[in-house]
C-alpha cells in the first residue's frame, strides 16, 4: 500500500479500501468530536466480511441521494439531469434536501471562499459514507477563475473528491458518466474520500483555515 502523500492529495489510490482500515483505530489525530463509523463487521471472518461488504456497497451504490446544494454555475446542469431527458432517478439518484439524508455532494463548479465555508459544514453533517463529485474545471484547477482573489482553485485541498468531471460546463451526460464511475468505485469499495478526510482531518483543517481566515465556524459542528 502506498503511503499517503500530502503533495498529491487527489491521489486516492494511496488510500486503503473501505474494509482494510477497520481493524485499527485511525492513527491520524482526530478531534474528539470527530468519529469514525461502525466497527462491528471487523470481528467477522474475512471472507464473510468481504461478502457482506460487497452487498453493503451495492446497496450504497444503488441509492445515492444527492445533496441539493447548487454551489456554482454547474448546478444548472442538475435540473436537466432530473427531468425527463436524462432522468437520473432511474439510477436511484434522487435529490435530498438535507445533508442528514444525503450521500453525495456535488460541487458544481467554482467555489468562493464564502461558499466553501458552508460546503464544509454541510459535508461534515452528512452521514458516512459520503462522496464528493467535483463538477467542472473550476474544481480542478480554478478554471477561468485562476486569478480570482476569492475563489479556491484546488478543491481536493479542502475536501476529499471521489470523482472529477471535467469540462466547462460538463454536459449532463458527462455527469451521468461521473456517477457511473462513482457507483463502480463504491461497489468496489474504492470510493473512500470520507475516510481519507477523517484520517487526515488535521491536514484538511489546516488548508481550510488558510483560506477561511475568520474561522468562525463553531467547533461543535464536528
Amino acid at each position: 500500500m502506498k503511503k499517503f502523500d500530502p503533495d498529491r492529495p487527489w491521489d486516492l489510490t494511496t488510500l486503503p479500501t473501505t474494509m482494510a482500515p477497520q481493524g485499527s483505530r485511525p492513527h491520524a489525530p482526530v478531534e474528539d468530536q470527530c468519529f469514525l463509523g461502525a466497527e462491528a463487521d471487523i470481528k467477522q471472518p474475512p471472507k464473510l466480511q468481504e461478502a457482506v461488504a460487497t452487498i453493503k456497497n451495492w446497496f450504497r451504490a444503488s441509492s445515492l441521494n444527492v445533496l441539493a446544494f447548487g454551489t456554482g454555475c454547474g448546478a444548472i446542469e442538475l435540473r436537466p439531469l432530473s427531468t425527463s431527458r436524462f432522468d437520473m432517478s432511474r439510477f436511484g439518484i434522487p435529490g435530498a434536501p438535507t445533508p442528514r439524508q444525503s450521500n453525495v455532494f456535488i460541487i458544481s463548479g467554482y467555489l468562493s471562499v464564502k461558499t466553501l465555508t458552508r460546503v464544509i459544514r454541510c459535508y461534515e453533517q452528512m452521514p458516512d459514507p459520503k462522496w464528493v463529485v467535483a463538477l467542472g474545471s473550476c474544481t480542478i484547477n480554478g478554471g477561468m477563475y485562476w486569478d480570482s482573489y476569492n475563489t479556491i482553485k484546488v478543491l481536493d485541498l479542502y475536501l476529499p473528491v471521489d470523482v472529477y468531471v471535467s469540462g466547462c460546463m460538463p454536459r449532463p451526460e458527462a455527469l451521468i458518466a461521473g456517477f457511473q464511475y462513482l457507483m463502480d468505485d463504491v461497489k468496489k469499495g474504492k470510493a473512500n474520500g470520507w475516510h481519507h478526510y477523517l484520517e487526515n482531518l488535521e491536514w484538511y483543517r489546516e488548508n481550510q483555515k488558510q483560506v477561511i481566515t475568520d474561522w468562525d465556524l463553531p467547533n461543535y459542528n464536528w
Binding site: F35, G37, P99, R118, C122, Q125
Partner: peptide
Amino acid sequence: SPPMRKIRQLDIGFAGEV
C-alpha cells in the same frame, strides 16, 4: 442503528449556515 452520537444542540442542517 449504527453507532450513534448525541450531538450538540445547535448542530442542525441549516443550509450550511451557522
